[in-house]
């Protein structure tokens, strides 16, 4: 038989490993999400750069596909994510609120130009990514702050080729970040 101190140590070990399992599952899910958004954002930025007339449609399509993909990830893979069921609806509401506030800032209260829009949305998105990272894991913080810094750099210093810059920074950054998260 063991004494209570050893028993406490064993329970602490269990807690620690459970925490790590949840973290690793979260990372796996988040990395899929990041890669998915990365591909979409890369494509939309390329469209914006090559055919600016179609930019609006491209971004609406990206938003719909992106959110749809995340919800599908939740709905079709309920057994491997660390939170309970019924997260789908709440997730949808959160995204609705997210886009509503973004729309309010850029189109109702303010009137952002294309360049400002191209900067606003990525850093808005990355703000939540980074904030989530403060609680869930520092990989998110690193990716979020890195992409934000590069985005702002592009806004101030890159001229005509800004959408192309964003395709690589934002799209490429998300893909690389997502793949990197799998290795942790």
């Amino acid at each position: 038989m063991i004494d209570s101190r050893q028993a406490s140590a064993a329970l602490a070990d269990i807690d620690d490993i459970v925490q790590r399992v949840k973290q690793s599952q979260l990372y796996e899910l988040a990395s899929l999400a990041a890669v998915w958004w990365g591909v979409l954002v890369f494509a939309a930025n390329l469209v914006t750069w090559l055919w600016p007339i179609y930019a609006v449609y491209a971004w609406v399509a990206v938003d719909v596909l992106g959110v749809g993909g995340l919800i599908a990830l939740r709905v079709f893979d309920p057994k491997s994510h660390p939170f309970g069921a019924g997260v789908g609806i709440r997730l949808f509401l959160i995204f609705a609120l997210f886009f509503a506030f973004g729309y309010l800032v850029t189109n109702v209260v303010g009137h952002f130009g294309p360049r400002q829009l191209g900067t606003f949305w990525p850093i808005y998105f990355m703000l939540f990514y980074t904030l989530a990272g403060l609680w869930f894991g520092y990989a998110f913080v690193a990716i979020g702050l890195g992409i934000t810094a590069l985005t702002l750099f592009g806004f101030f210093y890159i001229g005509e080729a800004f959408p192309l810059w964003m395709a690589f920074v934002n799209g490429g950054g998300l893909i690389l970040g997502g793949l990197w998260m799998r290795r942790i």
């Binding site: 800032v105 850029t106 209260v109 303010g110 009137h111 952002f112 400002q116 900067t119 606003f120 850093i123 808005y124 703000l127 980074t130 904030l131 403060l134 609680w135 702002l152």
Partner: peptide, 22 residues
């Protein structure tokens, strides 16, 4: 964490104001 979070939120608000020329 809370402090960092607040700092990030405030910074984002400032960036929005800068972009929007509100």
């Amino acid at each position: 964490r809370t402090l960092l979070a607040l700092l990030l939120i405030a910074a984002f608000g400032l960036v929005c104001c800068h972009f929007g020329r509100f």
